[in-house]
Nucleic acid binder design. Structure first.
Lengths: 143, 143
DNA sequence: CTTTGTGCAAACGATTTGCAGGATG
DNA sequence: CATCCTGCAAATCGTTTGCACAAAG
């Protein structure tokens, strides 16, 4: 339980978001997982035990959190929109076999020289996506 | 007209794809543009003068070309699937103001050390996405 | 001629929206 | 107590599919 109720409430309030049970639950859920779930996965998780939220509300909560800058969207597969509560700059690794996505800490990829691009372009930020196979899949489908 | 009819026909045949007017047109269209269009944009372009192809056919042509490895999908915005006939490895620049996407030649970004990742991960390839503002937008909304 | 592609319209799945009732600040 | 949120159902949008006919090899 790495995240305190108070911290979450605090974060929401700072962003002028009303603290409702549903919105709180969505954000807490995202903070507690690192698997970049989709809206539906969050919904399923929230309603695992007892009904907690509806589809429409999860979508709107995610949208609110996104606009507030508390979560980011991760787009690495066609037609799949994932969410991530880790908003600090970082990169991603995607396993081509099982599809899992894991974070790569920002400083694990260094020395990236983006300075040499066409002059006139104003570079603001960048992101690296690494594709390959995770441990498990590398073993299973090894080669 | 940088691409010859014969080359296109040749490329399709090599991939065991039947050469139909529609499929030819879709591929030729992609080869002639660098703006990473969506399926709908390709369709509109093909039917600009006279009806040339249908929605379903453009979708299936793109799918066939994609599976054959003649085009790639580019996913930088939520819910927008773009296509690119440049299948050589390269990076992308996306203007946050006008949304245009342009290619960054592979060798324009060097010295990327992907070796330091968690051992066990088998890295196959990577891609860099750079976000910022293009010349035009940098001027207009300058800061 | 056998196989594959085309085009229409209907089907689909993820996301969004309209709206009435309910909760938040 | 004014504003914003929830949840339901209907609407939307891009993409896919079923099928009859046409074209490619």
């Amino acid at each position: 339980m790495p995240h305190h109720t108070d911290q979450i409430v605090q974060a929401l309030k700072e962003k002028q978001l009303r603290v409702t049970p549903q919105r709180f639950a969505v954000y807490a859920n995202l903070l507690d997982r690192t698997d970049h779930p989709t809206a539906e996965q969050v919904l399923l998780d929230l309603n695992r035990d007892a009904p907690m939220s509806s589809q429409a509300t999860v979508y709107s909560s995610l949208q609110a959190l996104y606009k507030a800058g508390l979560v980011r969207e991760v787009l690495l597969e066609e037609g799949v929109r994932r969410y991530d509560a880790n908003v600090a700059p970082h990169h991603h690794f995607r396993c081509e076999s099982c599809g899992t996505i894991e974070d790569i800490a920002w400083n694990e990829i260094r020395d990236l020289s983006v300075g040499g691009l066409r002059p006139g372009l104003r570079v603001e930020r960048y992101e690296v996506t690494v594709y390959g196979h995770c441990e498990t899949c590398a073993k299973t489908y090894s080669a």
